[in-house]
């Protein structure tokens, strides 16, 4: 493991100045990705700035039609929150399927979406629910946040302070996990939102994406059979030892169909 300076930030401002003032500073949220990465000498930051002591980044609240989740909220907290379970049960369930219990006890929503692993679960919920990502500088629409593999709209010194999820009339997330890592080979989040149906896919491509054809079909009939015959192209999908692009494309249809069925209860 490479060495680095560890700093514990006391406020958002403190954290930002520590990161921007360092030679190669990074925020440390749950650490579930960055610590193993440094351990394997795949990253070599000069400074890690721990957000755990920063006020105002934790907590979960539901008001009106919005679920607010602090950037440092742990997956286990989202999973166990009765408020989330009542408002967006699909979101609570998704959080309960990330990694394993110990990862869920440490990993945070802010860390997860800022990392934007192409096979992570949360990006599907952020895009699938049309959420808004709040940072220390601005609000970013979920649709604009994830810009590419491990890339986001975040600028240097910008950190995720929270995510606002509008409550859908119904939603579900269906994941086909990689049997080794338990990340998503394909994960499909479907939701009936005030702006219409949304279908967001993680794991299949280099970055989370929406499936317009499925959304249109669901707008006419929010039922499994509406998406059952919609095949997505596999040209831009991931292909690796765990799943070919062809198989991933097939799984997108199957998971979408099953997610719609589950959303309909």
């Amino acid at each position: 493991m490479y060495d680095f300076n560890y700093r514990k930030a006391s406020s958002v401002e403190d954290a930002v100045s520590a990161v921007t003032g360092a030679e190669d500073g990074r925020f440390l949220a749950g650490g579930m990705t960055i610590i193993p990465t440094i351990k394997q000498r795949l990253a070599n930051p000069s400074d890690l700035v721990d957000l755990a002591g920063v006020g105002g980044l934790t907590g979960i609240s539901v008001s009106g039609n919005t679920v607010e989740i602090g950037g440092m909220a742990r997956h286990a907290e989202v999973n166990a929150s009765s408020e989330v379970a009542a408002a967006i049960p699909a979101l609570a369930r998704l959080a309960g399927g990330i990694g394993d219990p110990q990862v869920r006890n440490r990993g945070t929503i802010g860390g997860s979406i800022a990392n934007n692993d192409p096979a992570a679960d949360y990006p599907a919920a952020v895009v699938g629910l049309g959420a808004t990502v709040r940072t220390n500088r601005r609000e970013i629409a979920g649709d604009d946040f994830f810009t590419g593999m491990f890339e986001t709209a975040l600028e240097p010194g910008e950190l995720v302070t929270g995510v606002s999820f509008p409550v859908p009339s119904k939603a579900a997330y269906m994941k086909f996990p990689n049997p080794a890592s338990r990340y998503a080979i394909v994960g499909v989040f479907v939701a009936a939102t005030s702006g219409g149906p949304r279908v967001a896919v993680t794991g299949a491509g280099p970055c989370v994406f929406r499936v317009a054809e499925m959304e249109q079909a669901l707008a006419g009939n929010f039922a499994p059979e509406a998406v059952a015959d919609i095949k997505i192209g596999d040209d831009d999908l991931n292909s690796d030892i765990h799943a070919s692009a062809e198989y991933r494309a097939h799984l997108v249809t199957v998971m979408a169909k099953r997610a719609v069925a589950q959303a309909n209860g």
Binding site: G31, A52, P101, Q102, R106
Partner: peptide, 18 residues
């Protein structure tokens, strides 16, 4: 796995400083 403040964590993925 150990318990930190009552919850289970993987101590290989947590810094001592944390």
């Amino acid at each position: 796995v150990v318990h930190v403040d009552g919850i289970s964590v993987k101590s290989c993925t947590m810094l001592a400083h944390q």
